[in-house]
Write a protein that binds this DNA or RNA. Structure first.
Lengths: 338, 338
DNA sequence: CTGTTAGCGCCTTCAA
DNA sequence: TTGAAGGCGCTAACAG
């Protein structure tokens, strides 16, 4: 290796890390050899020697049905989070290790998490990934930040949008402003903490409005098809039993719902209002434009990454849970007019 | 470590990798201890011992102007490529190391590339990233696949869309079908090989149509603002000197052009046609919907990754250049009617 | 079947 | 200012 070529050994290390205590002439010579040989220190060896990998990981699960949704749906949740993380990382120059798992099949999921965790200094875990027990074990070995995760997960730091306030504002609007009183709720997967919070927010709001009824609900997977499925269930009812609003736990599902409903000849929002959550770009382009709750996806990534870096720097630091504000985005699918 | 707890040493390794040659009872015991202690083998040490990291890298540069474009623009080139790579990787269970660099500032870019390359078994390099010399040096140390890169880069494998055919079909359509004869070309950055190919395709097509004139061109950065800038240049001309079509080297710039042109009161396509390249989702939602050339971005990622994996498996394998077909997507911004 | 023994390539004292 | 030496945690070859 470069050592032979030059003449020395650990001096190379000093040169590579521009530590001082090296005679300029020596440094010069070493640099030349390094350049000539195209030497690049192996990062695995480095990680090993100084017990630091200088990489953080991001794990996510893929909600979309690959064959149908692939080409669609503007910026998705994960894309935006990833961007945020990247931007938070780039001043440091650390790369990001990404791994996405197809469905949420529990089998092997933990081994996968472990394997990833062995390659990074800290891990960002999104949505309802991993059971609480698994996360707990993970957290004992390595810093973990939950992005949109459950705020009461053992020792993990958490960033999450303020789901309850968001959904509450939305539903309040639907009820008070548009007089909708027979709601249908299309929720997200049971495992997803943010889905659960949205549901809780809904129930809370309903309890404040005795005149309003939840006429049905459906557990979706945050994917467009879930919306279509749910819409079919709604359409299967006798016409006079139709809800006057379908509240969806995310935009993708709302898109599916709208398509299916409109396909069946219903007018949105005249016959039935439809709302989403997230505010993905595509929502604004629909006809009618989607009323939704904006959650700052990119910022979730940034803040999550910042928390992670802080914890990596100081593992003993007290646990932190950060709530990011949501905002009601009123467009037309709720009944408002452009 | 687990070894103490159990009783053995390298047996643990055998158990972890379910190699046979371990008495069931022993295996059992070791597994229990592993589980109890939550032991996870350190991947840096593993990489070191077997000289394999089981990670591939993806490097890209960010073309967007962060402050303006951030929230916009449906699935971008990189997002799609990344998806493709991920899907190609997931059966293997390898994670992907992602690093995005802001502008194309040459300074430090090579060191950045080197640093990333030290952490992976192979590298996917997108668009016009890295000078040919740098890429050449990189390639001697580690397998490299260029995604949308120059097909004549030293020893790197390459996947690229068939840019010339694509642009040629598009321009042919504009000329033959719509009689456009005074074209303005908004190209991509000089360093980007795909931008160069598109330009070459244009010139080629023009040379086959003597009656058609290129009235001007502009070198953009593949970003929306580039489109706005170019449009302003077009608008600054005397009205009678206006081109009858603006051909853009990607969709994002086409969007910028359309906005600016329409903002100035011009009708697209009646007064002036506008076309893009890529076929990002958003293009279909514009008014008028964007006529463009579709390049299979996701597939670029998949195939690129496959090539990379093959080369990692067999570094001596002959170099390969793969061309992926493009397709003309006729919507309305060219003058056709829905 | 299982333990021993070398490294893998680099960083970090400690001496010189 | 520099070299020598040990060790990071794991795997692989070789003995038992």
């Amino acid at each position: 290796m470069a050592r032979e070529a030059g003449v020395s050994t650990a001096t190379v290390s000093r040169v590579v890390h521009d530590q001082d205590g090296v005679r300029p002439s020596t440094r010069q010579r070493v640099l030349e050899v390094i350049d000539a040989l195209g030497y690049v220190p192996d990062s695995a060896a480095q990680s090993m020697a100084r017990k630091r990998k200088e990489v953080v990981g991001l794990v996510a699960i893929e909600n979309r049905d690959l064959d149908t949704d692939v080409e669609n749906e503007g910026l998705l949740f994960i894309d935006e989070v990833l961007r945020g993380v990247e931007s938070s990382l780039s001043p440091l120059g650390w790369p990001l290790l990404v791994s996405v798992r197809r469905a949420a099949d529990e089998a092997g999921a933990y081994r996968w998490l472990q394997k990833i965790s062995a390659k990074v200094d800290g891990l960002l875990v999104t949505e309802g990934l991993g059971s609480p027990e698994h996360l707990a074990r993970l957290t004992t070995r390595i810093p973990v930040v939950l992005v949109s995760g459950s705020p009461d997960q053992a020792d993990a730091d958490v960033v999450a949008a303020d789901n309850r306030v968001g959904i509450s504002a939305l539903v309040g609007h639907l009820i008070e402003r548009h007089g909708r009183a027979r709601l249908f709720y299309l929720g997200g997967p049971r495992e997803a903490p943010d889905a659960r919070e949205r549901r809780a927010g809904l129930d809370e709001t309903l309890s404040r409005h005795p005149g309003v009824r939840l006429t049905g609900s459906f557990e979706g997977q945050f994917a467009t098809v879930s919306g279509q499925l749910a819409a079919r269930e709604v359409l299967a009812r006798p016409r006079e039993d139709l809800p006057d609003a379908v509240i969806c736990a995310n935009d993708q599902m709302a898109i599916g719902v709208m398509r299916e409903l409109q396909g069946a000849g219903l007018r949105v929002p005249a016959d039935i209002a439809v709302t989403g959550f997230d505010d993905i770009y595509l929502g604004a382009m629909l006809t009618p434009p989607l009323t939704t709750v904006r959650q700052p996806m990119r910022l979730l990534g940034e803040r999550g990454c910042d928390l992670l870096l802080e914890r990596i720097a100081d593992p003993a630091r007290p646990r932190r849970v950060e709530r990011l504000p949501t905002t009601l985005v009123i467009r037309e699918s709720c009944g408002c007019t452009g």
